[in-house]
Design a protein around this nucleic acid. Structure first.
Length: 770
DNA sequence: AAGGGCGCACTTTTGA
DNA sequence: TCAAAAGTGCGC
């Protein structure tokens, strides 16, 4: 009998001594299927640094007679090595065996002993999560399993292409509040839980005397809805943990897994529910650099979802006091429902991308969003490494060692007209591919290789073999070629169709992974951390951009600015065409005119400019307007100034706008929200060497029982009073207008933001004072 | 448990 | 008073 299914979750079964994988998914008829894949033999490799491999084999066979030992040929960083493949009959033996070897051998002698079973077999069998597979199976049996069909595979499954299935989604939100500071699960019961699903109306349940009933209701609802995907916001690190803790308090078993198991924290810190995928929209928001404030509302706005208005942003500090009034309580409850509904809608928007990223990197759907970029690349590289028979090294934290990066050109300050930005397309990935930069092609300094067989990298003088193709050339060729063909394909399709979305999201996922390969190579936590690769990529980048600037000047094009892989030049079409042709033929790289500006403004600073597009649109780069750590009032003023100067060509108008804002704020006409300054904690408050405003505010709130940890955002305003700035910072929710230090906002927020632009035109500060 | 890279601008604190 | 250090967030 054959089955076909879309893989939603992959679980490891350690309840039996024989290792097996459980593949959970949905078939073409919409039935939920569980396929058990057993007869898997865990294995790892042993490389002897001292003994000859036969001697090693013999001595190991004496100690572990029940192992299957075979001598094989593999590669270690491109060089052939003889290895002993050690296959174990079960987990227990594998654990014992690895323990023994780790004690005896140095870590360099063991390979692939750290791969989890699911990773082992997604790599070996080309088994891809979030994709369709098919294979032969026979009916199987499982106790207490929620699935329409339970099968036992009789052969290894194959990957196939079918249209994406409709996954059943359920979103939830949990309302908690602390009696003193942050809500603590051992002390503060859950006040309300809301759920939203595709079929049913959104529902919210309030806690009566305590939260036992609503917890039971939640568990029951999950089990009766039986979703494939559970969506939440901040669910991985906060909401699931809170639910679990409260269940513990009431002695409830949160048996919402499809095998009746409870949710548990798993790799990369995600919450795993057996047979289902979990999706935390916070993880998605966290990965979006454009998103300055990481909450559900800003995410909804970013994704242009209309449900953004249905949720109010309520500051944690305000929750408890809101809850005390009837009106506030109604608001909070409505909000909880609104958040569940919004999570459902946004979950649907994000899912197609998550599926593509999961299929590409082979990280299961629930892991892929939580895993940082480095881990996604790490996972992606496992398969090409396996195909090349490269031994997969363990992840170890290496010492930090900096290296030279890209070139930034000094901008020509002032106002420019008719400028075009020329960008190299995927510069680092293309350079890595072209020069075969890879851990397994790097030639060591003591190796003698004829110069014609090597690429010699300028400046750094590292050498890479021209042949055979390295790990990155293999991986990047696949990625870059597929991306190019998808882009072509997309031009033929109408947008908003299912096929279009699927391909567009696949293209996005490929771009993310391809662009991350360079950074990965220089990341000291990477399995294949080889600094020479990263160093060579940036050295080639510097050479490329320098040569391009020279060529542009030779062609008579004035270069106004450039950064890493771009140059800003006058828009002279014939000359630019010649430059692009030169890059194509002489460098073998694609340069594209990315953007044209009718007017473009530079200060003396690099990485900061504003440009007016031909259609009247305004790009603002690096300036205060696009920074999250400036008050809205300062950003608003600068934005108005830029519009006046660039679009309306009026310095006078700009000056008037600044003056009117200063006048307004001095007159006390402002909202506190315009003055809030936000900064992230980058470490725990006790680790700070200096007393910074946001750290002092966090300290104050910590004393009151609020949680603040590294990564949390602190929002504060500056109030009147003597002393240092850090003594005048207060949580914005507790401050009234008359306490605000207006002088600070005028002198240190509005003025600098406005003058950044206006000083270019010779405007003096006193011209802006009212 | 930790969560690609380097280059740069800018504010505030620190310490002499 | 001033330069250096600490800290943050950006660009690519």
């Amino acid at each position: 009998m054959n089955y076909r299914m879309f893989v939603v979750d992959i679980g490891e079964d350690r309840t039996h001594s024989t290792p097996s994988l459980r593949l959970w998914g949905v078939d073409e008829k919409g039935q939920r299927v569980l396929v058990r894949l057993s007869q898997l033999k865990p294995y790892f490799y042993f490389v002897s640094s001292t003994d000859d491999i036969l001697t090693a084999q013999n001595s190991i066979a004496k100690i572990f007679p029940n192992l299957s030992l075979t001598i094989q040929l593999r590669r270690r960083l491109g060089r052939e090595v003889k290895v002993l493949k050690i296959s174990c009959p079960d987990y227990k033996t594998m654990d014992e065996c690895v323990k023994y070897f780790r004690k005896k051998a140095t870590v360099h002698d063991l390979f692939e002993d750290d791969l989890r079973l699911s990773v082992r077999y997604t790599t070996d069998l080309d088994l891809t999560p979030s994709s369709w597979i098919e294979g032969a199976a026979e009916p199987g049996e499982e106790d207490e399993v929620k699935a329409d069909r339970v099968l036992t595979a009789t052969a290894e499954p194959r990957r196939i292409e079918l249209e994406k299935p409709t996954l059943r989604m359920m979103a939830f939100d949990v309302l908690t509040l602390g009696t003193k500071g942050s809500a603590k699960p051992d002390r503060d019961p859950i006040r309300a839980i809301a759920v939203a699903t595709d079929k049913l109306r959104p529902e919210v349940k309030l806690a009566e005397k305590d939260d036992e009933q609503i917890l039971s209701w939640f568990i029951q609802t999950v089990n009766s809805v039986d979703p494939d995907v559970l969506v939440g916001f901040n669910s991985n690190r906060v909401q699931w943990l809170y639910l679990l803790e409260r269940c513990k308090v009431h002695n409830l078993k949160m048996n919402i897994g499809r095998d009746s198991s409870e949710p548990r924290t798993s790799s990369y810190g995600h919450i795993s529910v057996a047979g289902r995928a979990t999706l935390d929209l916070f993880d998605y928001a966290n990965g979006l650099v454009d998103l300055k404030i990481k909450d559900l509302n800003t995410l909804a706005e970013y994704l242009q979802d209309s449900s953004a208005e249905s949720v109010e942003s309520v500051d944690d500090l305000e929750l408890a006091s809101s809850w005390k009034s009837d009106d506030g309580r109604r608001r909070l409850i409505r909000n909880t429902t609104g958040k569940a509904v919004t999570c459902l809608r946004l979950g649907r928007l994000v899912l197609p991308y998550a599926i593509q990223l999961s299929a590409l990197t082979r990280l299961p759907l629930d892991e892929v969003m939580t895993a940082a970029v480095g881990f996604r690349v790490d996972s992606y590289l496992l398969r090409p490494a396996h195909l090349k028979e490269e031994l997969i090294p363990r992840r170890t934290e290496q010492p930090f060692s900096p290296y030279r990066g890209a070139i930034v050109l000094e901008p020509q300050p002032g106002l420019h007209e008719n400028i075009v930005v020329l960008d190299f397309a995927s510069m680092y990935p293309n350079l890595m591919r072209k020069y075969n930069l890879s851990p397994d092609t790097l030639i060591h300094t003591d190796e003698n290789v004829p110069p014609e067989e090597a690429f010699i990298i300028p400046e750094v003088k590292h050498r890479f073999r021209k042949k055979p193709d390295g790990l990155y050339r293999l991986a990047l060729s696949d990625l870059l070629d597929e991306r190019a063909s998808i882009k072509k394909e997309l031009l033929k399709l109408t947008s908003k169709t299912a096929k279009y979305t699927e391909l567009a999201e696949r293209e996005r996922a490929i771009k993310v992974i391809a662009n991350a390969c360079y950074g990965y190579a220089g990341w000291r936590g990477a399995r294949w951390y080889v600094i020479e690769v990263a160093e060579s990529a940036t050295a080639l980048g510097r050479q490329t951009i320098t040569q391009t600037v020279s060529k542009a000047m030779k062609l008579g094009l004035e270069v106004i600015y450039g950064d890493t892989d771009s140059i800003f030049v006058q828009n002279r079409p014939e000359k630019i065409e010649r430059l692009l042709g030169w890059a194509r033929s002489e460098l073998g790289l694609e340069v594209r005119p990315e953007r044209t500006y009718s007017r473009l403004l530079f200060t003396e600073a690099m990485k900061r400019y504003a440009g007016l597009g031909d259609d009247g649109s305004l790009d603002i780069v690096g300036l205060e307007v696009v920074r999250g750590d400036w008050s809205d009032i300062a950003k608003q003023v600068q934005s108005e100034v830029l519009v006046s100067v660039l679009r309306n060509r009026s310095i006078e108008e700009a000056i008037e706008q600044v003056k009117s804002t200063i006048h307004r704020i001095r007159g006390g006409e402002f909202r506190i929200s315009e003055l809030v300054i936000r900064k992230n904690l980058t470490k725990s408050v006790s680790d700070y060497a200096v007393r910074a405003p946001h750290v002092e505010v966090a300290k104050k709130l910590l004393k009151e029982g609020w949680d603040f940890k590294s990564g949390d955002q602190v929002a504060y305003v500056i109030v009147k009073g003597p002393g240092k700035l850090y003594e005048k910072a207060e949580p914005y929710t507790r401050v009234s207008s008359d306490q605000i230090d207006v002088d600070y906002y005028v002198a240190n927020q509005i003025m600098p933001a406005a003058m950044r632009v206006l000083s270019i035109f010779g405007v003096k500060e006193r011209q802006l004072e009212v």
